[in-house]
Amino acid sequence: MSTTTTTPTAGRRIVPPRLSEYARTFVARHASVMPMLAALVILVLILIGAQIHFGDFVNPRTLSSLLLDNAYLLILAVGMTFVIVTGGIDLSVGSVMAFTGIAAAQMLDHGVSSAIVIPAMILGGAVIGLMIGVLVQYFDVQPFIASLAGLFLARGLAYVVSLKSIRVENEHVIWLQSTRWWFGEWYLTPTGVLALLTVVVGALVMKYTRFGRTVYAVGGGEQSARLMGLAVARTKVLVYVISGVCGGLAGLVLTAYSGAGYPRNGIGTELDVIAAVVIGGTLLTGGVGYVVGSLIGVLVYGTIHTVISYMGAEQSWMRIIIGLMLLMFIVVQRVIVVRAERRR
């Protein structure tokens, strides 16, 4: 460096590093967080842009309903994050959500108590998740195919339960949706609280528990994790069970949200969830990802939806814009990762 002088004994003149250098070191040190930060920046930019364009977009009402409308997506995204960080994928989540939802609606319709129905939904999701996990871990089936079997199974079972939508009039389930806890202009619903709780629990488990660290280790290198003596098999099965549980929980939330069970719910939701998780900075190759990132990803996704419906654009444009947004995020992340790798 040019800052060193010819006489070392005289000491070095210390030139404070420029701001750009700070930024560069920061980016290099926190390369894995960068995609998540990029998503956050873009979320803020979209919100600012929408605020300027519509005049009154960023207000407590819109933002509160953002959480309410996307609660089920958020819950699914948390489960999906676990799976994707291990390097797997779970295509079954949308169908599991539909199946547990319609099954619950049917049981409630037959007068079964919600104290039995709600645990049964979660158990149902867990069982399908367990099936996928066992196929993946013990029978060496690729996650894509194993969860595809889960998708077909849950979707078919949903149609076996009922071909039509079933209204839900159970007071406890309705309570989840209709209750509004007001904080000034802001409000929260029990479904929103459930979603946020899932995020908090998911984030804490990923960061602070032995299981969570094993999830990262498996995604980073399964062989190495095994050689380190980590419980790879148990972890790989458990992530699918977690995703299944999240599917069951999302089924509950969606049933409360729509006030009915419907077997065609959540077709293609798995792709929305994967898109949201990827936007939130989780790499599909595994090993890198944050539950909080998935929260940001879901918020970005939900905000784009809200913006498009505000604009009154057609359904066809919605798909194109979501696709382009996804593309933009992917390219941005790719650029960040490439630059971080080059600096190393």
Binding site: L283, S316, L326
Partner: peptide
């Protein structure tokens, strides 16, 4: 060329493609 993971790279067109098709047929 851009070295994006295939599943995500093709997800873009999977989402946008049907929108384009709907535009072509005017819905």
């Amino acid at each position: 060329v851009l070295k994006i993971q295939p599943i995500i790279a093709t997800l873009v067109l999977m989402m946008a493609g049907r929108g384009v098709a709907l535009l072509i047929t005017d819905g």
